[in-house]
Amino acid sequence: METLNFHFENGLRHIPAQPELVGVVSSGNLEVLVENAALQGGCAIEIKTAANGFAAIWEAVVTDFNQRWQLSDARISINDMGATPAVVRLRLDQAIETLLEHAS
């Protein structure tokens, strides 16, 4: 298992207080947990992955995610069992969309 950590500053979009969990860790999939956290406007993303050696790809995917959503005071935990970048993007977007939908 490899653990990767990314942090982004100056987010613009606050998320609701309740956490949101989407996905299931199983063969070729991943789960994403999004939580509100006091991070001084930042967004922290921790990835635990069974696929070692893909840090550059993970960085590209989460940087793109951050540019699209610009979350503030958000902690995101990802447990991965070898999902493709497209599945990662889908699950991340699904988590935020579900979280915001439940807040409405």
Rank of each mutant, 00 (worst) to 15 (best):
M81D: 11
E9C: 10
Q40I: 03
L71G: 10
D73T: 07
E2L: 08
G41F: 11
E20S: 10
A55R: 05
V32I: 13
L21F: 04
E2A: 11
D73M: 05
G11Q: 09
M1V: 12
V32F: 10
N5C: 13
E46S: 03
A60Q: 06
E20K: 12
Q18A: 12
H14S: 15
I45Y: 01
E20L: 06
A50Q: 07
N29K: 11
V88N: 06
N5V: 13
N29T: 12
L99K: 09
T84Y: 09
V32T: 10
L4H: 12
A17K: 05
G42P: 01
A50G: 04
N29R: 10
V34M: 03
D80I: 05
L39W: 13
V34S: 05
A103W: 02
V24I: 00
R13Y: 15
A74S: 07
D73R: 03
R13H: 15
N52H: 06
P19G: 02
Q67L: 12
R91F: 01
A56D: 09
S104V: 08
N5K: 14
F65P: 12
T84L: 11
I15L: 07
T63S: 10
H102D: 14
A44S: 12
A50L: 05
A103H: 00
D64Q: 11
A83G: 00
R13M: 14
R13K: 15
T3H: 13
Q67G: 11
F54L: 03
V88K: 08
A95N: 10
H7T: 14
S77A: 11
V62K: 05
A50C: 02
D73A: 06
T63L: 04
Q40W: 13
F8P: 09
E20I: 11
T49L: 00
I47R: 00
S104A: 09
A86C: 12
H102V: 04
S26A: 13
V61D: 14
L21K: 04
